[in-house]
Amino acid sequence: MENITNTHLFGILLTVGLFYLITLAKHRSRQNWLNPLLLSVIIIICILILADIPYEHYMEGGSVIHSFLGPVTVVLALPLYRQRKLLALHKYSIMGGIIAGVASAILSVIGLSRIFGLNEMLERSLVPHSVTTPIGISVSNMLKATQGITIISIIITGIIGASIAPLLLKFLRIKHPVAKGLSIGASSHAVGTTKAIEMGETEAAMSSLAIGVAALTTVLVVIIMQVMGWY
């Protein structure tokens, strides 16, 4: 067993295989709530614990996949580029909405964490919970927080956002498709955007635009907070 798991191939094969199977199951069953990332993570952790395989063995191959985070972050420029006309058209509304969203994300995590008595490491790890995963990981590193906790909080945020969006936006009487899409993308990134796609074309475009703009704004705000010594 040791000989099989202590290789690069083990981690890569396990990750590719699971992601493929879960994505296939998602398409076959048309269950949109199925999250291949979250399910793969849970199943891999279960396999490692149950089969008593050391985490380091999985990471031999895992780190190869992990090293693609750089290029994955770089290509996030493409959806932003594709929505450039929409961005120019609604620049003031987008700027206002995103700044309100990013400020409330950071302040609410810090405030709520202190109310609920979370330790500092946990608080820092939750700060980028509304940011798209590759940039969320960068923010987590900037804050010297824990990547693993940040990622789990990002996925859970996406699922929450996609579930509550129709009800919450109705309750707040939000009627404009630009406001709907922007708020979904800014709060619950790509996972929430799946819900925005069901709502309509403008909602979908605004949501995918909001992902990049909100993420970059968060990075900027965190840099300012750190340079000023506020956090």
Binding site: G11, L37, V41, I65, L69, T133, I152
Partner: peptide, 13 residues
């Protein structure tokens, strides 16, 4: 995109 974050997610363990 999700595929590339699986190892980072597993690091939660």
């Amino acid at each position: 995109m999700g595929f590339f974050f699986i190892p980072a997610g597993v690091s939660v363990m």
